[in-house]
Simulated assay, not measured.
Amino acid sequence: METQSFTMNIDVQTYQNLKLLAGISALTESELAAEAVRIFIEDQSWQIEAIKQGIRQADEGKFASEQRIKDVFSKWGIDA
């Protein structure tokens, strides 16, 4: 599998826990971090399709009516 490097900042405690986990596993810190990112992206990927669907609907002119927006705002106690 082809890989791509990038840099990220994490808090010290998370980094220490990553080092500890790497020390007791057969994976490196980099491999553990890559796996965590992969799992997170896989778990959150539903958002990609939801956004694409929203764009398609907007392109088709399917928007919420003014009344619907007021009803939703009213539900949350916001005077629109």
Rank of each mutant, 00 (worst) to 15 (best):
S30L: 00
A34T: 08
S5A: 05
T28C: 01
E60G: 13
A80Y: 15
I55N: 15
K70F: 07
G54R: 12
I39F: 13
E66S: 15
Q13I: 09
A33P: 02
Q4C: 00
I78P: 04
A58V: 08
F73D: 12
E60T: 09
E35L: 02
I51S: 10
E2P: 11
A50R: 13
R38G: 01
S25A: 05
E29F: 04
Q67V: 03
A50V: 01
E29A: 06
T28E: 02
W76S: 13
S25W: 03
N17W: 02
L32Y: 03
L18W: 03
G23L: 01
D79W: 06
N9C: 05
Q53Y: 14
Q57G: 07
Q13A: 14
S25C: 02
I24Q: 13
N9I: 00
S65R: 13
A64C: 11
K19Q: 09
Q44L: 02
A80D: 14
Q67L: 10
R68E: 15
Q16D: 12
I48C: 03
Q57C: 12
A26R: 07
G54Q: 12
E42K: 11
V72G: 12
Q47N: 03
Q44C: 01
D59I: 03
L20W: 04
I24F: 14
S65T: 14
R38A: 10
S45M: 04
W46G: 06
Q53F: 09
S30E: 07
A33Q: 06
S30C: 05
E31F: 02
S65Y: 09
W46L: 01
E2W: 00
L20F: 03
F6I: 02
A26C: 00
K62A: 14
Y15V: 01
A34L: 02
S74N: 15
E35T: 05
E35I: 00
K70R: 12
W76F: 15
Q67C: 05
T3G: 08
V72I: 11
Q67D: 14
K62V: 10
A26T: 08
A64P: 08
Q67E: 15
I69Q: 11
E29Y: 08
G23F: 03
I41T: 06
S5L: 09
I78G: 07
L27A: 06
T28L: 02
A58N: 15
L32W: 04
A50N: 10
M1A: 11
A64I: 01
V72T: 07
L18R: 07
L21W: 09
A80P: 12
G61T: 04
R68M: 03
E2C: 02
A22D: 04
T7N: 13
F73K: 14
E66P: 09
N17T: 01
K19I: 00
F6G: 09
K75N: 12
G61R: 11
A58D: 10
L27N: 11
T3W: 06
I41Q: 08
S45K: 11
A36I: 00
G23M: 05
M8T: 10
A58T: 11
E49M: 02
V72D: 10
E35Q: 11
E42R: 13
F6P: 03
R68Q: 14
A50H: 14
Q57W: 15
N17D: 11
F40Q: 07
V37C: 01
K75F: 10
Q4F: 03
S25T: 06
E29S: 05
K62M: 07
I48L: 08
Q13S: 14
K75E: 13
K19D: 05
F6Y: 10
